[in-house]
């Protein structure tokens, strides 16, 4: 009798563990990816409502390389981390820079691209870039970005900072003359604005900004800290698409230079 009881308890425990194990190791047949959709050329929404851009193509390629199905979830930038933590999706692929600040809340994969930040201004406005020259200027920036933080920490006292929900809104106000300058990712500025007709009166000013303290180690994929297996899977997928040429194919679709950095 005693023996039988023990056996039963043992079986019970084994079954329980099996279930627990199942619940822990999610299989990731479908990966829900949070994206932004207002940050050309990395992500934008086409007139007929489809998401397109470098981030979107990379997201699709990565999840495909993992052998899973993708579900894209568009989300406003300033709620993009809280929504990940609230499990609205499982990963963020939205040109998010890997910074110490963000690492306190989420885990990151290795980078999938890295480009410097830069200022733009109306042509001729800033003749020689210096702190003095920026004094009293109104500078637009996307809220909750590394650029917002850099500007607030370094120029907060000298300039008026205008914060926007999306990069597109910042472009509108720059062309309307409500801002003198913008600070953002150099590639986004060049491909998403300067090369377009609206951007013809504007130019880059100042140096490439890459200070690790603010600009981090490049753009990575943010994942909830408890989903360590998904971080592994994404890292492997990044290696895979880098190796098999998929990455280069996507890159060449949008840029004529290497966005991965060194």
């Amino acid at each position: 009798m005693q023996g039988k009881m023990k056996k039963l308890v043992l079986i019970f425990i084994v079954v329980l563990l099996a279930f627990a194990g199942n619940a822990l190791a999610k299989e990731w047949k479908v990966v829900r990816v949070g994206v932004e959709g207002a940050y050309p050329p990395f992500s934008w929404v086409t007139p007929d409502g489809k998401l397109e851009g470098f981030d979107i193509d990379i997201a699709k390629a990565l999840v495909k390389a993992m052998g899973a199905k993708i579900e894209l979830v568009p989300q406003d930038w300033d709620g993009i981390i809280p929504a990940l933590l609230a499990k609205k999706y499982d990963a963020i692929i939205a040109s998010m820079s890997i910074t110490e600040e963000r690492k306190k809340k989420v885990a990151f994969t290795k980078k999938y691209y890295q480009t410097p930040a830069k200022f733009i201004a109306r042509k001729g406005l800033i003749k020689k870039f210096s702190r003095e020259a920026l004094k009293g200027k109104t500078i637009g920036v996307q809220r909750a970005t590394i650029h917002d933080r850099y500007l607030t920490d370094n120029y907060g006292k000298d300039v008026t900072i205008k914060r926007y929900g999306t990069q597109d809104e910042a472009y509108l106000d720059l062309t309307a003359g409500r801002c003198d300058m913008l600070l953002a990712d150099s590639v986004a500025l060049k491909e998403g604005f300067l090369k377009k007709p609206e951007g013809k009166d504007f130019e880059f000013v100042g140096p490439n900004l890459t200070d690790k303290k603010w600009f981090g180690e490049g753009a990575g994929i943010a994942i909830r800290k408890e989903d360590k297996d998904l971080v592994q899977k994404f890292n492997a997928a990044i290696d895979k698409i880098r190796a098999d040429g998929t990455y280069k194919k996507i890159q060449d679709k949008y840029f004529d230079f290497d966005v991965y950095g060194d």
Binding site: G79, I81, P82, R102, R143, A144, R149, K162, Y164, G165
Partner: peptide, 22 residues
């Protein structure tokens, strides 16, 4: 707050973006 004004909600949005604590 949507058009860059820092009112009470604007302040909350800045705080949220700084600490990721909605």
């Amino acid at each position: 707050s949507v058009i860059t004004i820092i009112d009470i909600t604007g302040a909350a949005r800045i705080v949220n973006s700084r600490y990721y604590s909605p």
